[in-house]
């Protein structure tokens, strides 16, 4: 397996686990971002960490976005929501935003053999609207600067 294929496999596997943890039926862009942030000793993970986005910080930012979005319509997620059981064998499917992020990743490389781990992060960061850019903005992260840094990784 090429290094990129192994990396993509790790991202998809971890993204699926993140979706499960999130009680989500689908793997969305935010689950892929969490997966990227969890791949220790990879260039995209270091770029995120340099921007203050270690795995736990991404999770905190996403939780904050959820609470912030609910509060805009007067709803508080602060009440103690009982945790429901999860079906062990159920596999989350790729969701619309997850698919879009991957499509943008692949489209950002001229040829398939040029794909590198940073392309995945680039694909995720390309989204201008939705949960991920909102979470980054709320965390005070400059998405455009982060995207520029990820693009630098590709050209290095």
């Amino acid at each position: 397996m090429r290094p990129f294929d192994a990396y993509l496999h790790a991202i998809l596997t971890e993204g699926e686990a993140e979706a499960r943890r999130d009680r989500s039926a689908t793997i969305e862009a935010q689950h892929l971002l969490l997966a990227v942030a969890a791949q220790e000793d990879t260039a995209p993970q270091r770029v995120l960490a340099e921007a203050g986005l270690r795995h736990q910080a991404v999770r905190v930012a996403l939780d904050r976005e959820f609470e912030h979005s609910l509060s805009a319509v007067g709803v508080s997620a602060a009440f103690g929501l009982p945790r429901s059981s999860v079906l062990p064998g159920r596999r989350p499917a790729m969701g619309a935003t997850g698919r879009l992020a991957l499509e943008r990743s692949f489209a950002s490389a001229a040829r398939k053999k040029d794909l590198r781990p940073a392309h995945v992060l680039v694909g995720i960061l390309h989204a201008e609207v939705g949960t991920v850019p909102r979470a980054l903005a709320l965390a005070g992260v400059d998405r455009a600067a982060l995207l520029a840094r990820a693009l630098e990784l590709i050209s290095e």
């Binding site: 805009a72 709803v75 929501l81 429901s84 909102r134």
Partner: peptide
């Protein structure tokens, strides 16, 4: 953007609440 994000968050909250 805030209104659309609220829809997404409410759906997620409703799904979690329904399961529980």
């Amino acid at each position: 953007g805030d209104a659309l994000a609220a829809v997404v968050a409410l759906r997620r909250l409703a799904d979690q609440l329904e399961d529980a």
